[in-house]
Design a protein around this nucleic acid. Sequence first.
DNA 1: TGGTAACTTAGGTCAGACCTTTAGGCCAAA
DNA 2: TTTGGCCTAAAGGTCTGACCTAAGTTACCA
Lengths: 259, 259
Amino acid sequence: MAGTRPPATSTGRSAVRLAPMEVPKASDVLADDLRERILEGEFEEGTALPTERDLVTQTRMSRTTVREALRILEVQGLVRIKAGRGGGAFVQRPGKESVASSVNLLIRGQRVRLAALLETREAIEPFCAKLAAQHRTDADLARLDAANKAIADETGSLADFLQANVDWHVAVATASHNELLMGLMSALSTAIYTATENETFVDDEVRRTTVRAHKSITTAIRAKDPDAAVRRMNRHVHSYAQAVLEVDERTEIPVPGEN
Amino acid sequence: MAGTRPPATSTGRSAVRLAPMEVPKASDVLADDLRERILEGEFEEGTALPTERDLVTQTRMSRTTVREALRILEVQGLVRIKAGRGGGAFVQRPGKESVASSVNLLIRGQRVRLAALLETREAIEPFCAKLAAQHRTDADLARLDAANKAIADETGSLADFLQANVDWHVAVATASHNELLMGLMSALSTAIYTATENETFVDDEVRRTTVRAHKSITTAIRAKDPDAAVRRMNRHVHSYAQAVLEVDERTEIPVPGEN
DNA sequence: TGGTAACTTAGGTCAGACCTTTAGGCCAAA
DNA sequence: TTTGGCCTAAAGGTCTGACCTAAGTTACCA
């Protein structure tokens, strides 16, 4: 080992090369450590982490730092923080909500076009329907029926209709028994919901068409017929997209020259 | 309006119903306000927000609170914080990284099965290929070719191969010109990358097959042939999934009874 | 003129005090 | 027996003010 030493430059200085280094912040170090433990499954869901003041004495960091770390984890959906006696940071496994919220940030931040949302749904949902037809349980069917019943209720408001619609689509994803698809679909559906909320095209006609389509898809899923499920879902989602985009253009084009 | 009063219970008590209320934290209020402005486009990307101490005087909140708000936005990918003179919080629009990281949290937190990842890719990527075939530009083609060249380089390590593989798949998504699909695919690909990194099944045979498949898909995209692109991508992704799962079972089953 | 030391301005960390929220227990009035 | 008032303890939430550290800017001297 002796004898291998870094070469010297003309100045006699050793020419050791070091990559630029990142100095992590204290709060990040703590957050990373806790995050890793949580994801590793070291704590049961719902377990309380030590109190802030305990963490201070254990880590010898200041309370500010500890709190920032906890705040990071909270934003990432890894803990839920309750104030007051018996409160504290409770471990939570991140679920669809966190994906949904970050997808929403992406959508709003990147000004994702409504068309892109609908396209994405066209990509994902037929596959969900296929998986659902393969793996559905009776509980899944019950959820689908319940959602569809709510959609058919003509006395409901627009918001009710859209919410029930979201529920049904999420129920399909749930029936696929693919956790990731569930998360994505629930994020997507909610986003489409909010984007469609002001649209005026949801009339009784649309409602009836929707109910009919949902019913026939549900039937395919119940019958464990993947091919029919894919085909029908494809048609449904595609025609819905077409309808929305048509209205979207109608409402946007008539206002030229305002620039 | 007079005369409508809440019904009374048997005890003569008014039965007013109130939902549980949320009292927002100060830091959340600030964070929400800033987030809304950022997403609304009030600041150009890269704009510096006021310094922490300025925000303190403007909002009349304490520095602790202001810092927590900024930290929240940082975690959500809405600002990037630099220390030192000329530093501060710089506005940033959330991109695929933030979606990717939250999808990763979901995957690790929910213990999403590798099979679910692969299924999801099977759902999304053929559609990406279709869109790519419809909308690809010359720049897109260049990226695809570059990535494929890197994959074909047999001198590269496993990590190099996998990285180039990810690059190619992301390039397809990019060519789809759908921002959301881009974000999802880049998150998915990276996740599959890490999940596959320890697998032993990537031999020269696999590499050659992969290169061949990518080439034929690229050809379809270049020729603007959506149907062929979908078909070939479907086959590629599906057979890759099969191969991975086969190895996965082989490596997991032989160790029974350790429970 | 080139290097470097000093200064300035920003975020990062710390210590400590006080406020607010919540759970639980206790007790007196209704 | 119930209801409301009250107290206390324990936890997070907020504030203050000081100091540390990182990174540009400037000025000065060899």
